[in-house]
Structure formats: structure tokens, C-alpha cells
Design a protein around this nucleic acid. Sequence first.
DNA 1: CTGAAAGCGCTTACAG
DNA 2: CTGAAAGCGCTTACAG
Lengths: 335, 335
Amino acid sequence: MAKKVSMKDIANRVGVSTALVSYVLNGLEKEKRVGPELVEKIRSVAKEMKYKPNQIARSLRKGSTNTVGFIVADIANPFFGQLARIIEDEAVKLGYTVIFGSSDEDYLKFGLLIDTLVNRQVDGIIIVPTEGCSEQIKSLKEENIPIVSIDRYLPGITTNHVILDNYKATNSAVKYFISKGYKNINMIAYESSLGHMQERIRGYREAMEENGLAKELFVKKVRYDHLKHDMVKIMDELMNEKKIDALLFATNAISISGLYTLMKNDIKVPDQIAVIGFDGHEVFDFYKPQISYIKQPLEDMGKEAINILVDQIKGSPKTVHIELKSQLVVRGSCG
Amino acid sequence: MAKKVSMKDIANRVGVSTALVSYVLNGLEKEKRVGPELVEKIRSVAKEMKYKPNQIARSLRKGSTNTVGFIVADIANPFFGQLARIIEDEAVKLGYTVIFGSSDEDYLKFGLLIDTLVNRQVDGIIIVPTEGCSEQIKSLKEENIPIVSIDRYLPGITTNHVILDNYKATNSAVKYFISKGYKNINMIAYESSLGHMQERIRGYREAMEENGLAKELFVKKVRYDHLKHDMVKIMDELMNEKKIDALLFATNAISISGLYTLMKNDIKVPDQIAVIGFDGHEVFDFYKPQISYIKQPLEDMGKEAINILVDQIKGSPKTVHIELKSQLVVRGSCG
DNA sequence: CTGAAAGCGCTTACAG
DNA sequence: CTGAAAGCGCTTACAG
């Protein structure tokens, strides 16, 4: 069990103080005007002894950890996995390590994750907020911990956020449907008070109303934790009660689940129902015909979020709101 | 900017030493026989002052961080995303936080991630090893940092690992093909010296040889970082040079890429080529016909890995090798 | 140019 | 039952 080597070990070996070792190993030898032969000596001894700095001790002393947290709904969901990857890469470039956590859209789990991150003294947190997490966010703000909300935001609380142009995204999609002659356009969305979902619904609603289709308005709600069950039920209703000719899915997970149900019920796309999904997914490419979708600029979203966070950590006083442009990718599924 | 409250603040307020506060807040009040009224007082003051323990200070003092690392190839890949999620959940139950990192199958990046984790004093690391990472693993072993290799292992280095029954997995798949009358069975695998890939190839080869199909042996190699390019080329060769009637994909990513190419070339499955893929994926479900695949017990794999790691951290001296059973899920794609 | 020393916020023998 | 004190491994004024 080779004991770990510390700065003290190096200092003893070279015959200097730990201060010198610290200066040299942190590249402050110019500033502190350490003698060149000592610099050389310290460097080589450190290497020879395989010195590895203890980041924990450093963090305690400096009061910052160069660590950030990223709380998603579920890291196994490719949407968040991709975002995580982008944020990871960018964070590394900026000298930060990121700790991920999955909330399952549950504000209690969300709270536990926040506590863990705070106890671990992360310098800042990127959050995908859940419903009901306002209290947690408020106390983060009280503790002056920098946060950036991504993908979503909480109505009523001001935080930095980077989100999609949610209203415009669905609004354009619906208008595209309308331009193709569809009238009975239905939207399937999450039962959620979160800002992004409300805006997506509003985008749908206003496009319908503006085009004199207010009477055809039809938003069906599914629950995050009963997605499959609710989807099956809704699809039954759609096919029986109401004649629908076009369907807009409000998120990626809803899209996939919806497509499973369409496939199982052998509903022809776009002949029986035209479809527009959310985000890209391999399934969209393999579906016959390929599914049109609202594309999100994930790369920008992730990069913006971590960069804003780091700015905040470094003391930037301004609150930043960024809204990124979506893009409608038209393929075979909408006629 | 409310300053953070420390144990000292609580101690001062209550009028006791920090030792008492520490005992009480760590549930040692019985063992240390702290007076009941003091216990009460300390608890309530801690709550009132919104005390949050500084895990960094605790870690420094205790010499352990209750943190583990998990290095995958790419967290955006759903296979690893799912694994990460399982490990995260189990780690939380065991009182650990996990730090993820993506190596991109690059041993240099792998090395940097290891260094970061070691500097952060993680108590142990779960790794998906890359080719050429042996040196890194060896030095981890020298430093006595517990490691568990998952999904793969390095031939020639003994570490704890939890892997699939790779040989049997592909062996059974090929035998299934043969039982259905296929003879010209091709396998597409990664160019890799890693144990799991070698075993999957061996499983294929021996099934062929045992059934007098040695002459039909045909393994095509693709590179991780040129997957798409190589796949297109291979598919051309397969269709032109050699008559193939069945195709076995060696990993999930290869399967997806292969299916894209089959779809683009409009090759009929299973009439022109029968197919068996690796791991589950939504795309397998949407493909017409649905793709048969070798199923991995992800849940068990993740749980075993983190539990073994924690055992090691707690001092277990034995090296553990676990091989989990795969399962062939037969659907329409193999006739 | 270099060293002695304080201190980050905890935990934990040790002493009483 | 409780307190004084050391120490984890760093960084950083301060002094010379």
C-alpha cells in the first residue's frame, strides 16, 4: 500500500518549503521568482515521485471545486445523454468536471440531488427543472449558487436559462400542417405547468385560432410516469371519438411512444394521420415514411448553458436568457 | 452573500465544542453519550441555521470521498446511458455519488479522465476499457485504487470485471442461423484486441467450424471512429463479391449503422439477408420485420459492477469475475 | 528569492 | 459526558 505522495514529501526531498513546491507546480514560478535550478529540481522530483495533486485539499483551501452539477430527468434518455455529452466536453475544455444526476421528474429526488451537489461544494449547477422544484431553486439562489436552467424554465422564478423558441417551434409546425390542408390537428403534450410545455401548447393553440380552427383545438395530455398507458388510451380515443388528420408530438419521448402506438394500431402515416415529432431520433429515420420533426440545436444549447454557468461562477452579474431557433425538418410523414 | 454556516458557527451558538456538534450531526450521540438536551439543542440550531455539511472538508479529513468514477466510451450512446442510469441509482442507494466521463475509445482521453478522477480522490472507478489503456490500469492497481471493468476486459491484466458470456452469445446466435438453414453467415465486428470482441468473434468462428462451415467464415472489421464509412464499404463488398445469406452484428452501434445501410440499399430482410443484432434498441422494434437480437442483462451488469466496486472499496481482498447470461430474442429478421 | 505559519471545515483519538 | 487539539493536503498573505 504505497502511501500517496504529498507536496510535503517533495518539499522534504528537495529541502525546501511546501510553498515553493506549490508555486512551481502551479506555474507561479515567474510571478514568485523562484530560482530556475529549484524549479527544475522540484519538477523532476515531483515527476519521479509520481506526485498527484489532491484536488480535494485544494478545493477546501480555495473554496471552489471546479466542479459543476447537471441534473437531468433521466440520463438514459438519449436527449439528455446527448446534452450531457456536449456539456461534458465543453466543461472539460473550461477546466471543470461535471457530476450528473437523474431526477425522474420527481421534485423530491431533484431536491436530494441538489443537496448532494451543494454538500459537495459544486461551483454551479445546470438544471432541467421539474415541476414543483421552485423551493429548491429559491434556496439555491439564496445561497448564491450559480444556476442555469436548460431546456425548460420555471414560470415565476428568474434564473439564467437557455431554451428553445418553444412557441415558434410548434406554431410553425402547425402552420405547416395547415398549409398542407390539414385541419383536425391534435397535439399530445405532457401534463405540466413548466414553461416550455405551456409555450409549446400555446404555439399550437394560436396557430389553430389564427387560422379559424379554434373549434378543432384538441390537446391531449399524458403523464411522464404513465406515458405508455396514457398514450394507448389516447390513441383509442383519437381513432374512435374524433376524426383526426394530423398529430403533433410535444417531446421526443412522447413522439417515440406515439409512434409505437401508431405502429401497433397499424395506422397509416400520413394517409390516415400526418405526424410531426420532436427532436431527432433513429426511429424517425426508420419509420416508413420517415418522420418530420422539430429539430433542436442541442450543440448550441449545451455549450451556451455551460458557458453561461462558468461566466456566472466567475462573477458575471447579469442574468442571461437565451432562446435558440428550432427548425422544422420536413419528410414523408406530413403528406 | 450569506456566508456558509459551519460546525463552528453552531458550536459557538450553542456554546459547545465542534466535536459535540460533529458527533450529534453524524448520529454518534449514543456512542459518545452526549446529553439528550444538548443533542436536541444542537439538532435544532443546525436546522435553524440551515447547516449543510461540507463534504469536501469531510473527505479530506476522512481520506475517502464516497465518490466513484464511471468511464464509458460515450455517454450519449444509449447503451452506456442506460448503464450509467442503473449505476447511478444503485450508487445513490449505497451512499455514493458517481462522476461520469466519456473516452471516445481513445486511450489518451481515457488517461486524462483517470487522472482527473484520481486527483479528485474517487474511492474507486468502474471502467469500460479502451484499447491501449493497460498502462493506465496498471498504475491504478499500483496506487491501490479499486477498479471494476464492465462490458469488456483487457486480456493480460487481472481486474475485477463483469461481462457478458460473449462467446456463448454469438455462438448461440450463429447456431440459430445454421438451424434455420443459413450457411453463408457473415459477422461485422470492431477492429479491436479487447477481450469481449475477440470472444464474440471466436463464438462465431467456432460455431461455423463445428458445423463444417469453416470455408464460409467471413468476419468483416469496422473501425469505431469510421463506423459509417467502413460499413458502407463493407456492405458494397458483401453484396457484390460474396453471396451472404445471414449477418451478425457484434455490437449495438454496429447494428444500428448496419441497419441504416441495409435500409438505404433496400436489401430485404430476411429474404436477401437474415439479421441478428446486439442489445435492444427502438430501431429494432420499428424495422420491418423486427430485428432479432442478443439481449444483455444491463440491469444486472450495472448493479453487479457497482456492488463489487463498493465491496472492494470496503476492503474485500478477492478479485471477482462475473459473466452474465445473454439471451437470444428471436423475431422476424432471421426467417 | 524563500520559509514559517495560518487556515479552509471537518473528524477523532486523547484527556479529564 | 465534554473540550482542547491535532491533522487531512493544500494555498497564500506575510515577513524577511
